[in-house]
Amino acid sequence: MAAACRTSPTPTNLSGPRGRSPSIPRFPTIRCASQPLRTPSKTLATADPVPAFLSVTAFAPATVANLGPGFDFLGCALDGVGDTVTVSVDPAISPGTLSISSISGSAASAAKLRRDPLWNCAGIAGIAAMRALGVRSVGLSLHLEKGLPLGSGLGSSAASAAAAAVAVDGLFGGRLSLGDLVLAGLESEKKVSGYHADNVAPSIMGGFVLIRSYDPLELLRLEFPTGQDLYFVLVSPEFEAPTKKMRAALPAEVKMKDHVHNCSQAAALAAAVVQGDVKLLGMAMSSDGIVEPRRAPLIPGMVAVKKAAIEAGAFGCTISGAGPTAVAVIDGEEKGKEIGDRMVEAFLRDGELKASATVARLDRIGARVISSSAF
């Protein structure tokens, strides 16, 4: 069965009325007791819903996963950068199926992606959302616009999956819970990068999300206080860091003292988020003693880049996801640009890699419908 979610505070109805653009409520805490999405919930699966719109376009933000000691259980969403998916009712497509009509955006990313929906992140998540809804009488076509490069460590696959799941759900009036949407995204992640939700959950839900449990799935939204600024300096070198290779570098066993150290830093990281303590957040983020020490040497110049970021005034710096993007945190945009310049210089000087820098705010909203077309 699909996820049954409990929220705090009590949610409003997630089903959007027909004829209106669906809105997806956001909650500070979402706990989802779930079984595999392969068997949709009976109430949705038997409905064979009628499309509320002819087409819907959804945007899903990039994400930073791990944040140092939060390996595979903590991530956050980034404002302004991400992927966009448009899903349309298409009479030329067999009922109950989905086809990818086109892929655009970054030339390098678009050229590498397959249009077979069973081997494309957006296609897999879109099909999973259709299955959860019980769609049988109409076929859908999907267009993916890649705003994120592949293998950047910024949740590129998760953003495609999140945008597709939200677009399909929005096409039918916004009937799925946030837990259902995350499960649809996890179907995609499981196939392309592993069963971990630290990218797809924050991309869908926005803000910081902690995965307390995978079986059953339990997601905790950590609220960074409103009115406080939090900026991420993202520096991406021209270098590929395949997730499989970066995972292969991890230790098979961890010493007790390293385990205790990382647990304390992860706890400090979560406390810093809810307290809005950017300095503590940065210090905890920089203190991973298990994963980062194994991965940093595989990215030319990363050690020097982290040092340059902190010397330039960043509160902390680490590897974003599996890399190769380096991420630093600061509380001001202009200061962030200066830090980014120093990090770019370090990649070139010590790693002989060209790099580009971007400063992004925390995205507090997550994946959302941005436009729709009526019949």
Rank of each mutant, 00 (worst) to 15 (best):
L74N: 06
L74H: 05
G75P: 14
G75W: 06
G75A: 04
G75E: 13
C76H: 08
C76W: 14
A77H: 02
A77G: 09
L78G: 01
L78W: 00
L78F: 03
D79S: 11
G80Y: 02
V81N: 03
V81E: 07
V81K: 01
V81L: 14
V81D: 03
G82K: 03
G82N: 03
G82T: 04
D83Y: 11
T84S: 11
V85K: 05
V85R: 02
V85I: 15
T86R: 15
V87Y: 08
V87H: 09
V87F: 09
V87R: 12
S88N: 11
S88H: 04
S88D: 08
S88M: 08
V89Q: 11
P91S: 10
P91W: 05
I93E: 02
I93H: 00
I93A: 00
I93M: 02
S94H: 12
T97N: 07
T97Y: 13
L98D: 02
L98S: 04
S99N: 07
S99H: 12
I100H: 14
I100Q: 10
S101V: 01
S101I: 02
S101E: 14
S101H: 05
I103E: 12
S104E: 10
S104N: 10
S104A: 10
G105P: 09
S106I: 09
S106M: 03
S106V: 01
A107W: 00
A107N: 01
A107P: 02
A108Y: 01
A108S: 15
S109A: 15
A111M: 04
A111W: 07
A111T: 04
A111E: 08
K112L: 15
D116W: 13
W119P: 00
W119M: 11
W119L: 12
W119C: 09
W119Q: 14
N120A: 10
N120Y: 12
N120W: 11
N120D: 03
C121S: 15
A122E: 13
G123R: 11
I124M: 13
I127Q: 14
A128I: 10
A128E: 01
A128M: 05
R131Q: 13
